[in-house]
Write a protein that binds this DNA or RNA. Structure first.
Length: 480
RNA sequence: GGGGACGUAGGUCAGCUUGGAUAGACUGCCAGCCUCGGGCGCUGGAUGUCGUGGGUUCAAGUCCCAUCGUCCCCA
């Protein structure tokens, strides 16, 4: 028995080490030769593709188009909006040479594309008839992470989509911000089975250059909050410096209203953390590259022939039922080895078929999430598989929801607040709205405001820090 | 921002304290067997710029200096 090839750390004991092992050993990604960069392997990329296609379909259905922007942005352009530039400059990679000659206006490897996109938009938009303009970019962004890198969660380059829209009316732009966030929520909850909390960021935490930022947040099992996607209302903060303006119906030159929004492969990190266990990855069926794996069991040559025959037949049937199924016919591994292997990779369903099953016209169906095994007759196998996958998807979501609510605490006393943050809780507390109190909390506890939920009500209790009347309730946690 | 650890086979690491001849283990990999229902067993095989550069020494994986890189923890 060789444990080395499996996950050797426990999720509950050494979370960080456990996480890294799952990423590497389930073959989602590998470390690149440059610090802070990872290589996405086919299995990991495949998960990204499911996520991508789900978002992509929804974007296209709502009138968004895809396009592509170059990776290099001249400094003169990046610095045009001062707040934005100041916020990003510490983590920008600069290209300063082309060949042997130094570049005068040095080039940034895009940390985000607002500036580049809007300099183009200003050329493309002339009339109210050109609006709304709704373009999405699937690309990568680069932000230098010097310390504390972690696959998918903190890397110096990451895959994402960034949407940039332009509207004639303020209200229309704000509706866009909201409906994109709602689309994100739907995707994350329905596909990844991760429950999220929607709301606004505080002014301190909002996107640099935005009027406000809406966000979806969740808390991870190690007690750190993860920002899972953001949708920003930019107002006219960018349209003015970038000259994104149009002639309206009254022939008046008007600055446009803008939004930008994005999700990244961070969501894969969340997926691993939320659903994974000591055996490795646990994938929700909707994003699992392989939804069911068939493991044939045999010893003698006759058994092998008959089992593999039936297994192929089953594979075909299930596949026709719209399920992504794989038959593991590798001869060099024992069934036990394969069980562990596919469990580590998080395949939601395993179908075992051996001589004993053949004689009874059934298979053994084993669920990855709860390890339960059931016998299923050949005739009902397709439906049985589909039902099991649906059950797994909803059970995973239900369990994650329970965990989220058990990690959410309402607190009105600062001493209690500190304790709960220390325990890795998502703490909901009254807040006066001042940045000073926010900073005090950050200094004293390491926590910041993750989200001010949309449904937050002003509390009867005073601000958790300064004891002056509270304006709202906010959710605090230490973050990734 | 502060701290800690590490770099030796594809992977995980031992060897370094106290320098010594051909650098090891497990795992993985390759070939062949095996009645393969939870990492089964057996036989044989291939695999190393000991991170890099310099120094000390008769002799350096081991000691010294420099350098590059990686991982982890804490605010």
């Amino acid at each position: 028995m060789s444990k080395e090839i499996g996950i050797t750390s426990k999720k509950s004991e050494d979370f960080s080490e456990w996480y890294t092992q799952v990423v590497i050993k389930a073959q989602l990604a590998d470390y690149a030769p440059v610090k802070g960069l990872i290589v996405l392997r086919p299995y990991g990329y495949s998960i990204w593709e499911f996520l991508k296609s789900s978002v992509d379909q929804k974007l296209k259905a709502t009138g968004h188009e895809n396009a592509f922007l170059p990776v290099l942005i001249p400094e003169s352009l990046l610095s045009r909006e001062a707040t934005h530039f100041a916020g990003f400059t510490p983590e920008v990679f600069w290209v300063t040479y082309s060949g042997d000659s130094e570049i005068g206006d040095r080039l940034a490897l895009r940390p985000t594309s607002e500036t580049l996109a809007y300099s183009m938009y200003s050329k493309w938009i002339k009339s109210w008839r050109d609006l709304p303009l709704k373009i999405n970019f699937w690309n990568s962004a680069l932000r230098a992470e010097i310390k504390a890198t972690k696959p998918f969660l903190r890397t110096s380059e990451f895959l994402w989509q960034e949407g940039h829209t332009v509207h004639a009316e303020k209200e229309e732009a704000e509706n866009e911000v909201t409906s994109i966030l709602e689309m994100y929520r739907k995707t994350v909850e329905e596909e990844l089975a991760i429950p999220v909390i929607l709301g606004k960021k505080s002014d301190k935490e909002k996107f640099v250059g935005a009027i406000y930022t809406t966000t979806m947040e969740s808390i991870m099992p190690d007690g750190k909050a993860l920002q899972m996607g953001t949708s920003h209302f930019l107002g006219q903060n960018f349209s003015k410096p970038f000259d994104v303006k149009f002639l309206d119906r009254q022939n008046v030159e008007t600055f446009a209203w803008q939004t930008s929004w994005g999700i990244s492969w961070r969501l894969i990190g969340a997926l691993i953390m939320v659903h994974g266990d000591d055996k490795g990855l646990v994938l929700p069926p909707r994003v699992a590259p392989i939804q069911a794996v068939i493991i044939p069991i045999y010893s003698s040559q006759e058994d092998k022939d008959s089992v593999l025959n039936k297994a192929s037949e089953i594979k075909e049937n299930i596949s026709k039922g719209g399920i992504r199924v794989h038959l593991d016919s590798r001869d060099e591994f024992t069934p036990g080895y394969k069980f562990h292997d596919w469990e580590m990779k998080g395949v939601p369903l395993r179908i075992e078929i051996g001589p004993k099953d053949l004689s009874k016209n059934k298979v053994v169906l084993a669920r990855r999430d709860n390890m339960k095994k059931t016998d299923v007759a050949f005739e009902v196998l397709v439906d049985g598989t589909i039902n099991a996958l649906n059950d797994i998807q909803s059970d995973l979501f239900a369990r994650a929801k329970t965990i989220l609510s058990s990690k959410t605490k309402d607190v009105t006393e600062f001493s209690q607040f500190k304790k709960e943050i220390e325990n890795g809780m998502f703490v909901r507390s009254p807040w006066c709205g001042s940045q000073k109190c926010e900073e005090t909390i950050k200094e004293d506890t390491g926590a910041d405001i993750r989200v001010i939920p949309f449904d937050a009500k002003s509390s009867e209790f005073p601000c958790i820090v300064c004891k002056s009347p509270s304006k709202t309730t906010a959710m605090f946690a230490r973050g990734y």
